[in-house]
């Protein structure tokens, strides 16, 4: 999912702004993944490694439907529906047996789910990557103020991601479902005693997180190829995001996602340029990009030394 990195000799202001936009686009995608993870952990106390598989399911559903119908909108709907359906089934069959287990069992069972999902997808779709095309009305560059040319599709992703973030904040703070989610986070026995069907609530929250992951998979699928195993690198970055932001906090997920997206993208451009000031060109590129690939983990370590529960985390 990282945005393409330019092998430029010098960093011009236009390149810098382009990379900031790439970082934002990467960040909002990470937010779609991290929001589901953090909700599921906050409400149910579950660590779900199989979240990346739901991202993959969304991408494959979108690619299959786009291939059959040619419609990108239908493909997005299919991605949301398929990921939500897969999430619901997995929650009903496996996940709900894990809520009262320790984290080790949760890690293992969801690791097993990854194996099943990945190999199952390989079985159905084969090992070759699928491609999802950007629709005509979103392809090509647009000219931004200042004469910067930027792909319209990536701008659209930023727009969709921010819209989902606003919608999610509204859902959690202003709707009855949101009240129940927040109540479930703070005291699950109490809201069960008040007559809320807690197991139905859990299924809904899990399906919501799955749908967001599926949407992210479909949107990114049009930039990258759709293939088995595409979910895990993103899953791990989403973990970094929620560790930085504080587990359980949607605000933390948004801030963390943008920090990780910008750090990763800008680091890939700026660090080699920085090293070029005092190293020769090839050594600078090597050292700079090796260090840049580790940068977000260094960021995470720094945040944790400063705040072991993340930026917006509450004491567990």
């Amino acid at each position: 999912m990282p945005a393409p990195r330019h092998k430029a000799i010098s960093v011009t202001p236009i390149l810098f702004i382009e990379q900031v936009l790439n970082g934002l686009q990467f960040g909002v995608m990470l937010f779609l993944m991290a929001a589901g993870l953090t909700l599921v952990f906050g409400v149910m106390g579950l660590i779900n490694l199989a979240h990346g598989s739901l991202y993959m399911v969304g991408a494959f559903a979108a690619a299959a439907v786009a291939g059959a119908t040619g419609s990108f909108l239908l493909a997005l709907v299919a991605a949301l529906a398929a990921a939500a359906a897969a999430g619901t089934i997995v929650e009903l069959v496996v996940i709900r047996r894990l809520y009262h287990r320790d984290h080790l069992d949760q890690v293992l069972a969801t690791f097993a789910l990854i194996l099943i999902f990945s190999e199952g997808t390989r079985w159905v779709f084969g090992s070759f990557p699928l491609y999802l095309n950007i629709p005509d009305y979103l392809s090509g560059p647009v000219t931004l103020p200042g004469g910067i040319e930027y792909p319209l599709y990536r701008l659209a992703i930023i727009g969709v991601g921010l819209a989902v973030a606003v919608g999610l904040f509204w859902l959690v703070s202003h709707t009855r479902l949101g009240i129940r989610i927040r109540a479930g986070e703070s005291d699950r026995e109490m809201i069960a005693a008040l007559g809320v069907d807690i197991s139905k609530l859990y299924t809904v929250v899990f399906a919501l997180g799955a749908a967001l992951a599926g949407l992210a998979g479909a949107l990114v699928g049009a930039i990258q190829s759709v293939q088995v195993g595409m979910g895990e690198p993103v899953l791990i970055l989403a973990f970094v995001v929620i560790v930085i932001g504080g587990i359980g906090s949607i605000k933390g997920a948004l801030v963390g996602a943008l920090m990780v997206g910008l750090t990763d993208t800008l680091g890939g451009v700026l660090l080699p340029a920085l090293f070029r000031l005092f190293l020769d060109n090839s050594a600078a590129t090597t050292t700079g990009s090796a260090l840049a690939s580790m940068l977000i983990y260094i960021l995470m370590a720094v945040v944790l030394i400063w705040r072991p529960r993340g930026l917006f985390g509450v004491a567990a």
């Binding site: 952990f41 660590i47 984290h103 890690v107 791990i236 973990f239 970094v240 929620i242 560790v243 587990i247 983990y297 995470m300 370590a301 944790l304 030394i305 072991p308 529960r309 993340g310 567990a316």
Partner: peptide, 19 residues
């Protein structure tokens, strides 16, 4: 670094260091 945290944070941080 990682043992400053516990539980699910520890799992994710060790995962990230491996990556």
């Amino acid at each position: 670094l990682s043992l400053r945290t516990s539980g699910v944070y520890f799992i994710m941080i060790t995962l990230a260091f491996g990556q």
